[in-house]
Computed example of a mutant assay.
Amino acid sequence: MTSNDVVGLVNLMYRPNRRLPIVVVSDNDQGAAQLDTRKLAVRLSGAAHLIALDAGASWELTRLLGKRMSTFSGAVRIYMPGLVEDEEDAYQHPLWLAPNSGRNNRLIDILAERVFPLGFRDSDGESHFWHLAQLRQTASAAQARRQAGSDVDQLRLEVELLKERLEDVNETLETAEALEKIAADNEKAARYEVELLKNENNRLREKLYHLQYSDSESKCEIPKAVDRHLASYDDIEDWSNDLLGPNIFIHRKALKDCRQNGHPDMLERIENTLLVIRDYWIPYKIHGGIERRNDMITALGRLGVEDEACFARRERAKERDDYSVPDGNVTRILYDHFKYGNSRNNSEQFRIYYSWDEDGKRLIIGKMPSHLPNDMS
């Protein structure tokens, strides 16, 4: 698949009635897949949509979905059915970073194991394929009907059938309990590993943040990025991960809005605003203090940016579906926003709608730069 075909792939991903998973195999930097796609196609046998992406298609997929939900650089991903736009959870769509061997037969086995149970279910998750026990029962019943003579013989055969059925039920129950235990153990181990990785990632990012910007609180000038400027709205995810530190999280809905609706005239001002938030707003929010508060207000004011509630009656935001974003198992309400300009035209204004996570000490940016509907619109 080339970049011209990616829109069709994205439409397939978000199709509401899609029953089959989508397995996406991307090329590495040398233009080669890290597994045998023909062998994988034979193994899957129509139980999934199989898509091979070249480098250009991977870049286009990243532009449309964002880095968290994309597949690139030789990685392989399964996009599960039920994908809903703006509510994607990257952890629900498993990603494998294949070694640069070009073979990876074990990965083909893993993909087949993950895909086959999904391919044999309808959109409601119900299986329409008989188990072996069901086939055996049907065959036994047919034989009993053919061989039965007297009423006594008929009853004896029915008793035998009931015994077989009881054995099958017990066998099914034991299998289900074993699978449930395996699944629970795997889920527990996976969640534990994810938490370890998250904690380590946050620790390293926080350490890097303090090493790079430890002296920023003493300054009251509009800061500039140390390494590089924000190149474009397509770059905002990587740029924010590199420069904004662990206390600012830009939600996928905000990233998508930036890519689709961000205006070039506002790019530099949005960059400077995010840096002011990093260097002034975050320290004030975490540590407090009159001096930090005054520095924060001054720095935002120099950009013409205000920090205020979205509604005069604060709880009004909770009543509006578009003023919330999912964050793991939590729904974050966007009570407040940073605002510049009063126009509805994105070439003259931007809004950064956010929620403050007090436990995690994170600013969660749920929407930007477009203006959300309010009581006056």
Results as ranks from 00 to 15, higher is better:
Arg332Cys: 14
Asn201Met: 10
Gly66Cys: 08
Arg103Gly: 04
Glu126Trp: 03
Ile333Arg: 05
Ala190Met: 07
Lys361Gly: 01
Asp322Met: 05
Asn4Thr: 15
Val325Asp: 09
Gly125Lys: 07
Val276Tyr: 04
Leu267Lys: 09
Ser218Gly: 09
Ala176Ser: 11
His131Asp: 15
Leu50Ile: 09
Ser370Glu: 08
Leu166Val: 12
Asn329Glu: 14
Asp54Glu: 08
Arg19Leu: 03
Val330Phe: 08
Ala75Gly: 07
Thr298Glu: 03
Ala33Pro: 08
Thr62Pro: 01
Ile333Asn: 07
Arg136Phe: 01
Gln147Trp: 11
Leu95Gln: 12
Leu267Gln: 07
Ser377Trp: 00
Ala142Trp: 05
Asn105Lys: 00
Arg314Thr: 14
Ala139Leu: 10
His229Trp: 00
Gln92Phe: 06
Gly360Arg: 15
Asn11Ser: 06
Ser26Thr: 01
Trp239Glu: 10
Leu132Asp: 12
Gln147Thr: 13
Asn342Ala: 07
Gly262Val: 02
Phe311Ser: 10
Glu126Phe: 13
Glu88Met: 04
Ala254Asp: 06
Glu206His: 11
Gly360His: 02
Lys39Thr: 14
Tyr213Leu: 09
Leu300Ala: 07
His93Val: 11
Arg63Trp: 03
Pro99Asp: 07
Met296Lys: 08
Tyr335Met: 13
Glu174Pro: 00
Leu53Asp: 12
Glu348Asp: 15
Leu50Phe: 04
Ser214Arg: 06
Ala142Met: 08
Ser232Arg: 02
Asp124Ser: 10
Leu243Asn: 15
Ala190Cys: 04
Glu167Gln: 08
Gln143Thr: 09
Val159Thr: 12
Glu113Trp: 07
Ala75Val: 00
Ile333Lys: 02
Leu211Glu: 14
Ala148His: 01
Pro223Arg: 00
Ile236Leu: 14
Glu113Lys: 13
Tyr354Ala: 02
Arg15Phe: 08
Cys310Lys: 04
Leu64Trp: 00
Ala189Asn: 08
Gly125Asp: 01
Val25Thr: 09
Ser216Met: 07
Val6Tyr: 00
Tyr353Thr: 10
Arg351Val: 06
Glu126Val: 10
Ala312Cys: 11
Ala189Leu: 14
Leu111Pro: 01
Ala32Thr: 11
Phe120Asn: 05
Arg316Cys: 10
Glu164Tyr: 00
Glu271Trp: 02
Phe120Trp: 05
Glu177Arg: 04
Ser240Met: 08
Ser45Gly: 11
Leu372Gly: 02
Gly31Glu: 04
Arg332Asn: 08
Lys163Arg: 11
Asp234Phe: 11
Tyr354Asn: 05
Met80Asp: 10
Arg302Glu: 15
His49Pro: 05
Pro16Asn: 03
Gln147Ile: 08
Asn374Lys: 15
Arg19Gly: 05
Thr273Lys: 02
Arg332Met: 15
Ala90Leu: 01
Pro99Leu: 04
Asn104Met: 02
Gln143Cys: 06
Thr37Tyr: 06
Asp307Met: 12
Gln349Ile: 05
Glu171Lys: 05
Ile236Lys: 00
Ala144Gly: 08
Lys219Thr: 14
Asp36Met: 01
Thr62Glu: 12
Leu303Asn: 06
Arg103Trp: 02
His128Asp: 14
Leu107Pro: 04
Arg252Ile: 15
Ala176Ile: 09
Gly66Met: 03
Glu88Phe: 02
Ser101Ala: 03
Ser45Thr: 03
Lys256Gly: 13
Ala33Glu: 12
Leu372His: 01
Ala176Lys: 11
Glu308Ser: 09
Leu196His: 12
Glu306Ala: 09
